[in-house]
Amino acid sequence: MNLIWQAYLRNHGAIIQNGCVVGFGDNAAELESARSATVLSDLSHFGLIHFSGEDAQSFLQGQLSCDVKQVNASAALYGGYCNPKGRLLASFLIWSKGIGNGGGYVMQLPAVVRPGIQKRLAMYVLRAKVKLADASDDLVCLGVAGDDAEALVRKNLGEVPASRLGVIHSEFVSIIRLAQNRFELAIVPEKAPAIWEGLSRDAVPVGAPCWDWLEIKAGIPIITPATQEQFVPQMANLEAIGGVSFQKGCYPGQEIVARSQYLGKIKRRMYLANIRPGISDSQVEAGDELFGDMGEQSIGMVVNASPSPDGGFHVLAVIQTSSVEAAAVRWKSLAGPSLEIAPLPYSLS
């Protein structure tokens, strides 16, 4: 997290741990605001990699699951980075860098995995004219969500993108429309305080767990160290949110990803669910295994988890589809709490 920005947030009531805004003093009230009001969240728990140089597009096109040629000044994409076996090492949001210096692309992914992914990608640059740089301190990223999010962003920054994953750049901010009522702002640091002050007059400042809950409700998978190399992209519904292209050329794991798509039904899919652990149980976490109609054999894994304003935890979990159909999915053991499956905001083929 940019240290000047960190000091600013602390002066405005933020509780920061390990570079992440965990809240503003009342986690339960913040979660309720995320459900029922318009909220403002710092997104410094995500890191940024900047790709620049004349070969940046072709390099990324040969490494990522999404069609980077579709990323331009007015469009962002979700995507994945796989190992040679087609298992996800990272999921991300990528957009064209329209502010500051260098042009190229910005990849946003969890800060905890950013160094390893950047190092791995750099190994494959070879003679390509492309440079990778940690841009996590170069931009301040904010999330705005809620029924009044569009009106609020428009009031403070002017025009907003009309469509999902549309992008508008100005001299000092890139506005990305994540959904009908969710936006991300990537801001040059010197302008961030004024924008925060303007937005926070009408939006409730909340911590990262609230934004994580909104991502879960939106069905957006975030690959963390606990789940790296566990899923092919379709298991995590990445193709359903536009993160996989089956028409582009090769990338690591592409043959396995394509085979999974065309040679049979995906046996595991990602579901939205609620888990209500007992009082004595630990909290639900990414990487927790799930059990059910296959006895002691795991039938799935939690991808992401966050406390829910409804109680318990909302999760995204990759689960054997037959087990979901049998209504037999439990957390951590056959005797654990059952998962209450909820509808996703998008359809699966």
Rank of each mutant, 00 (worst) to 15 (best):
L263C: 10
F231C: 05
W196H: 11
A208H: 15
D212E: 14
P225V: 10
A226N: 13
V257R: 01
G253S: 05
Q247N: 14
A236Y: 08
E197N: 13
V204H: 06
I222N: 06
G278P: 00
P221E: 06
P193M: 10
D212T: 13
D202F: 13
A240V: 03
I279Y: 04
N274M: 09
K267C: 03
R259N: 09
Q228S: 05
I279G: 00
Q234I: 00
Y262K: 03
I220Y: 11
I241V: 15
C250D: 09
N274I: 10
P193S: 11
V206F: 10
R268L: 05
K267D: 02
Q247E: 14
C250W: 09
E215C: 11
Y251D: 06
Q234Y: 00
N237Y: 03
I256H: 00
D202Q: 15
E239G: 01
I256V: 15
R269D: 00
I241C: 05
P233K: 07
G249D: 13
Y262P: 00
I275C: 01
P225W: 05
Q228A: 09
G207C: 11
R276I: 13
A203H: 08
P225D: 08
Q247H: 13
M270Q: 13
R268N: 14
P209G: 06
V232C: 05
A218M: 12
E197H: 12
E229H: 06
S260M: 15
C250A: 12
V232R: 02
L238E: 05
D202H: 15
W196R: 04
T224I: 13
E255Q: 13
A208W: 15
E239A: 14
P233F: 07
E215F: 00
Y251G: 09
I222P: 01
T227E: 01
I266T: 14
P252I: 12
M235R: 01
V257L: 07
W196G: 01
P205K: 11
E239H: 14
E229K: 12
P193E: 12
N237L: 01
I223R: 03
I222G: 00
S200A: 15
L238D: 07
R268F: 07
S245P: 08
G242I: 05
N237G: 03
C210N: 07
L214P: 04
A258W: 00
G198W: 09
Q261Y: 10
V244F: 07
C250P: 10
E239M: 06
W213F: 13
L263I: 04
V244L: 08
Q234T: 02
E229S: 15
W213N: 09
S260F: 06
V204S: 03
A226R: 04
S260L: 13
E229M: 10
V244K: 02
R268K: 15
Q261W: 01
P205N: 11
R268Q: 15
R276T: 14
M235Y: 05
G249H: 12
P277H: 12
P277E: 09
P221V: 10
I275E: 01
L272R: 14
G264R: 02
V232S: 04
M235P: 03
I241R: 08
